[in-house]
């Protein structure tokens, strides 16, 4: 069984379902990417995995334990880390304080983890005393990822981490995400930049209208002519 396995998820916000029998799995240390057209339910699927959405059917297990009934906060304690797409930092707090807040639920010494985050994102170390709200878009995303890493998650979920950043910054962010995955953390990520994201993906999901349309390795999806034509613009 995969490290994260969210199977047959069906549900939505109101009466109408957004997700229809959607299944997402990620193995240990792997990068899984969810792509698809606008309104396909990508972010919704991610939120369902994180427990921010009531599911009518389906099950979410993490490392073999059923976490379907847990609140997002409890899922964080179980080893999930979540980086929302927007509003994902504390703008009037310093970078260091942001990371500290990330470690709020930890009672042990988090200094080592903070050093690891600084190693991963050296720029943050230089700007540790600066308010997160004053940083550039790319740096702010690094703070957001760093904050989520402070709980030492086993699974890191990123909702469009490269939205609104320049291509150069995007490449750098993807490099960092690969580095994170190499340390054994599983990654589940929603991405608009489908082509670049699939290139680094061990596993890719193409969602259409809340259902799995294609599921394969990232490379295979990139090579699939149907996927290329319909979703990657040729």
């Amino acid at each position: 069984m995969s490290y994260l396995s969210a199977t047959n998820m069906t549900g939505g916000y109101g009466k109408a379902d957004i997700l229809h029998d959607c299944t997402l799995t990620v193995d240990k240390g792997q990068i899984a990417v969810i792509v698809g057209p606008n309104g396909a339910g990508k972010s919704t699927a991610m939120k369902a995995v994180f427990g921010m959405l009531g599911l009518r059917a389906g099950q979410v297990t993490l490392d073999g334990t059923d976490i379907s009934a847990l609140s997002p906060q409890d899922r964080v304690k179980k080893g999930m880390g979540f980086v929302p797409q927007v509003n994902n930092v504390f703008p009037t707090m310093t970078v260091e304080e942001n990371l500290e807040m990330g470690a709020f639920i930890r009672n042990d010494n988090y200094r080592v983890t903070m050093e690891q985050v600084f190693d991963l994102f050296p720029i943050l170390k230089d700007k540790r005393r600066q308010n997160a709200g004053e940083l550039s878009g790319g740096q702010r995303q690094q703070v957001a990822v760093g904050r989520a890493l402070m709980t030492q998650p086993k699974l890191l979920m990123l909702d469009e981490p490269t939205a609104g950043v320049s291509p150069i910054v995007m490449d750098e962010l993807f490099d960092r995400i690969i580095e994170v995955a190499r340390t054994g953390i599983s990654i589940l990520m929603v991405e608009q930049n489908a082509r670049q994201a699939l290139e680094i993906a061990d596993k890719g999901y193409v969602l259409v209208q809340g259902a799995n349309k294609y599921t394969d390795t990232g490379q295979a999806l990139l090579a699939d002519p149907d996927v290329r034509r319909t979703f990657l613009g040729g």
Partner: peptide, 10 residues
């Protein structure tokens, strides 16, 4: 600063 994120952070 950010109520939702604060809740997420526990």
């Amino acid at each position: 600063d950010n109520e939702d994120l604060a809740l997420l952070s526990g």
